[in-house]
Design a protein around this nucleic acid. Structure first.
Lengths: 126, 126
DNA sequence: CTGTCGATTAACCAAGTGGTTAAGTGACGG
DNA sequence: CCGTCACTTAACCACTTGGTTAATCGACAG
C-alpha cells in the first residue's frame, strides 16, 4: 500500500468485475438488501459483502442500516467521472473524419507531412 | 480458476490504471512509438511494454511494426462497450426525478408503500 | 436469557498485477 | 561483422484480489 489510487482508477477497478456490475445493474432497478443482492450468485455471503465494500468505497453504492438489514442503493453519480473520461474519446469512434485522416496517412504515406505527425519524423525519406 | 474474463471486465480493468489511461490520452493526440510513450514516465521500458500489451489485448490500441519501431495508435471503438454500459446509468445522476423519489421515500418514510419498493416489505408496520 | 437471522470481520489461500533487472531479438549504421 | 538501438521476454519480487470457512456482532422472537 504505497500510493493510494486516484478516484478514476478506483471507479474503473470497481467496474472491472462482472459480479459487481451485475450488482449495480440490479440496484439500478431499485434498492435491495444484501441477501437479495446475493441471491442470484453462487458465491458465499462474505464474498458478496466484500464486493459491496468495494462498491461503497468507490462511492457507487450507499448502505443504510435498517435493523438487521443493510439496504443498498445506487449512487450512480460516482460513475459520472468514468463516463466523462470515456466521453473524451467518443469522437475517435464516432467521427469519421478520423477514419479519413487515417486513410490518407496510410495510403499516401510519403507525401502527408503537412498532416500533423505527432510521432515525429522517424522513417528515412527515400 | 481459468475462466476467461468477459470483454467489459477486460476493458474496465485496462482503464483502471493511471499509467495506461495517460498512454491512451497521449495516443488520442496521435500515434506514437513505444519510447515516445514511455518518455513521460519514470518506470522502466519493460513495464511500459506490458502496459501496452494489456491495452492491445483489450483492443484499445494497435501496434504497427515499422522497422525498429512499434508505432501505437488508439483503437477507441473498444471503449464503446464501456461507454455504452455507463450510459445506461446516466439518468440516475442526471434525472432529478430520482432525487425527488428518494426525497419522498426518506421524509415520508411510513406512508410511501404505494411507491415501488423493490426490496419488498421487510420492516414491521407500527 | 437463549437461539436465530442478516450481515460483517478474521484468517487463510491461489492467482493476478505492477514493478524490477537481466537476457534475447531484429533492424540498422559503420 | 559488430555494436547499438528499440523493444520484448523471462524470471523474480511485493502486494492485491477474489474466493473460501469459521467466528463475531447486533436485532429480534420466544
Amino acid at each position: 500500500m504505497s500510493t493510494v489510487p486516484d478516484t478514476l482508477s478506483i471507479t474503473f477497478a470497481a467496474l472491472a468485475d462482472p459480479t459487481r456490475r451485475a450488482i449495480l445493474e440490479r440496484l439500478a432497478e431499485g434498492e435491495a438488501t444484501v441477501s437479495e443482492l446475493a441471491n442470484p450468485f453462487s458465491i458465499s455471503a462474505p464474498a458478496i459483502s466484500r464486493h459491496l465494500r468495494v462498491l461503497a468505497e468507490a462511492g457507487l453504492i450507499e448502505r443504510e442500516i435498517d435493523a438487521r438489514w443493510r439496504i443498498c442503493h445506487l449512487r450512480a453519480d460516482a460513475l459520472r467521472g468514468a463516463h466523462g473520461w470515456l466521453e473524451t474519446y467518443r469522437r475517435h469512434w464516432e467521427d469519421n473524419l478520423d477514419r479519413l485522416v487515417e486513410f490518407v496517412e496510410r495510403t499516401h504515406a510519403g507525401d502527408t507531412d503537412h498532416i500533423k505527425r505527432t510521432a515525429g519524423a522517424r522513417r528515412k525519406k527515400p
